[in-house]
Structures are given as C-alpha cells and as structure tokens.
C-alpha cells in the first residue's frame, strides 16, 4: 500500500475514537489537510476546530489534559512546532501533560507551497524540550502504530507526518515500540540511519550500492527522542562509517542526535544527509527531493563520497 503518513494519522485517530471516550482531537482549520477530518467524521463530538490560532489550541489541549483527556492537537509542523513552540514548552511539556502534537506537512516534500510551509527545524526545536518524545514514522503501517502507541503513552509526544504518499516497507506483522530502532537490512561497509520519508529511499540506495559491491546496513530510527543508543553504537562498531538521512536541517535533527551518541560512546566518522542549513522552495515534491539529494541516487552518491574518506 502507498499512502501519506498524514492519512494514517487520521485513520488511526478514527480507530482510537472507538476505544477511548476521553480522546479529543484538535485542529487549527486544517482538518482536510492534516486528515483529522477522518476522525471528525467518526467522532464529531470529540473534535474541536480551534480555528487559525495555534497558540490557543495548544493551551486548550493542555487544559483538557488536566481533566484526564488524551489530546491530539494538529497542524502543519511549521505552525505546531514553530509558531506554538513556547506553548508546547510551557503549557504541555513543563507540566508533562498528556498532549500529542500531530504535526503534518513536515519537510521539503510539502512541495509547491514552498519555504514558508516546509518545516525543516521542528525536530531540533522539539528535541530541546524536556519531557518530549519525538516520533517520525516512515510508512503507513508504522504511522498507524505510532499514533496508537502515542495514545497509550502518558505524556507529550511530537508525531511528525508527511504530505507525500510513501510505499509500505514494513510488513503487517511489524511491531512498533517507542524508542526502539529497527534494523531493516544488514551490511558491513556503512550504516545508513534514516528517519521518516527518507527511510524507503535509503533502502533503495542500499540496493543501488549493492550493485557496486558496497554492503550497506540500514537502520530506521523512528523515535528521535529518546533515541535508541544501542542500535547506533552496535552499528558504528560493525560498519564504522555512519550516514544519517533525514528530511530536516542537518543542524539539530537526526544527524545531530546520532552524532551526540557517537561522539560520547564510540567516536565514528559521520556523514549527515539532509537539508544543508537552507530554506526550501516551491516545486513538485519528488523533484525537490531529488534536487536536495534525498532520492536514492542522491543518497548513494553521498555514501560513495563518504566511503572515500572512511
């Protein structure tokens, strides 16, 4: 199956509405885009449209949570993590309330809307707040389970979803656990550690590398915080060179998180693939991903260059 993780988000919420009477879903006038519309149709009495006022939406979510509700507050990543950063920090994370931020339209693959809507800084922002858990699923199967796991978890979770449809890479028997990285492919020359949409492209890059005689290990880090230190350390010991791939600024995101683990535990050469501290621009998503080197070919090229310095 191929669908955008934002679709999975809405579908998972609709399923959850049958199990939890105290589940509220909030949106800021973007229900059609964030796909919380799917929940709204299933459970209109627990859907609150807060209008175009994200700061207040996060505060309302916090207030509901103090009364025992499980709350998912949704908007585009830019306006959730960006605009409402301080409300998330002070009203949600400081009191560790049971609020989940459902942030869709993350990354460059937003496409045509351009730079103002392509959030490339949200992981960095959210990662710096105590009590926050960050999950960035890579396909529909993982996204559905991640939403349900977030609902089970008591406390703040930032869920990062994309606009662009992605192929399933996990099987139906896949089991998602917050904080547990997934080894998707074993290899000996290099480890690709990816998160979110680029995970699928990283697997394809590994296939291309194999044809050139390079054995790449691929690890999916869906939970950026708390990060799975073990799988990173194990990978570094096994392959040496680590390459991180993310649809985010290379500053502050997955690459930074992995480099922190490596430099503290097992100093290892690291190459960060992502957006090189620049803004995006308009264009079809796939073209942009290619332009920014986040397609399989681009990832492969970066890895070959990095291997030359190993």
């Amino acid at each position: 199956m191929k669908r955008a993780t934002r679709e999975s988000y809405g579908a998972a919420l609709a399923e959850l509405s049958k199990e939890n009477d105290k589940l509220f879903v909030l949106d800021a006038d973007l229900a059609e885009a964030t796909k919380t519309i799917t929940f709204k149709k299933a459970c209109p009495e627990r859907f609150i449209d807060c209008g175009i006022a994200e700061g207040n939406m996060i505060g309302v979510a916090a207030g509901l949570a103090t009364c025992g509700a499980t709350v998912f507050a949704s908007s585009f990543a830019m306006f959730a993590a960006g605009r409402a950063f301080e409300q998330i920090r002070n009203s949600v994370c400081y009191p560790k309330l049971n609020v989940k931020i459902g942030a869709t339209h993350a990354g460059i693959s937003v496409g045509e809307d351009g730079a103002t809507h392509q959030c490339l800084e949200d992981i960095a922002l959210m990662r710096s707040i105590p009590n926050m858990v960050i999950v960035n699923p890579c396909d529909d199967i993982e996204a559905m389970q991640a939403v349900k796991a977030a609902a089970e978890y008591k406390g703040p979770v930032y869920l990062r979803f994309g606009r662009l449809a992605v192929e399933d890479l996990n099987n139906e028997d896949y089991e998602f656990t917050i904080g547990k990285g997934v080894l998707l492919r074993d290899g000996t020359d290099v480890t690709i550690i990816a998160t979110g949409l680029p995970v699928g492209r990283s697997l394809k890059a590994a296939e291309l590398l194999e044809k050139e005689g390079i054995s790449a290990r691929v690890v999916n880090i869906h939970t950026i915080k708390p990060i799975d230190r073990e799988i990173i350390i194990e990978s570094a010991k096994k392959t040496g060179l680590i390459v991180t791939v993310e649809e985010h600024n290379i500053i502050g995101g997955l690459g930074s998180a992995v480099s922190e683990v490596l430099s503290e535990e097992v100093p290892t050469k690291l190459c960060r693939v992502g957006i090189n501290d620049t803004f995006g621009y308009s264009g079809p998503a796939e073209e942009l991903l290619t332009r920014f080197g986040l397609d399989a070919e681009g990832i492969k090229t970066k890895i070959i260059n990095a291997l030359k310095t190993k």
């Binding site: 509220f24 009495e45 627990r46 609150i48 700061g55 207040n56 939406m57 996060i58 505060g59 309302v60 979510a61 916090a62 207030g63 509901l64 949570a65 103090t66 009364c67 025992g68 509700a69 301080e86 409300q87 002070n90 009203s91 400081y94 009191p95």
Partner: peptide, 22 residues
C-alpha cells in the same frame, strides 16, 4: 495549571471549561 508565560493560562482554562461542557 502551570502558568507564568502570559496569555497561556486563559487558553488552558478554556480547555478545562470545554471538558466540563463535554
């Protein structure tokens, strides 16, 4: 409710009131 950053408490109060109504 934890407060201190101005403007935020009133939003949380709205959430509590909404829950009571619901």
């Amino acid at each position: 409710m934890s407060t201190g950053s101005l403007g935020q408490g009133v939003s949380a109060a709205c959430g509590m009131a909404y829950f009571g109504k619901a």
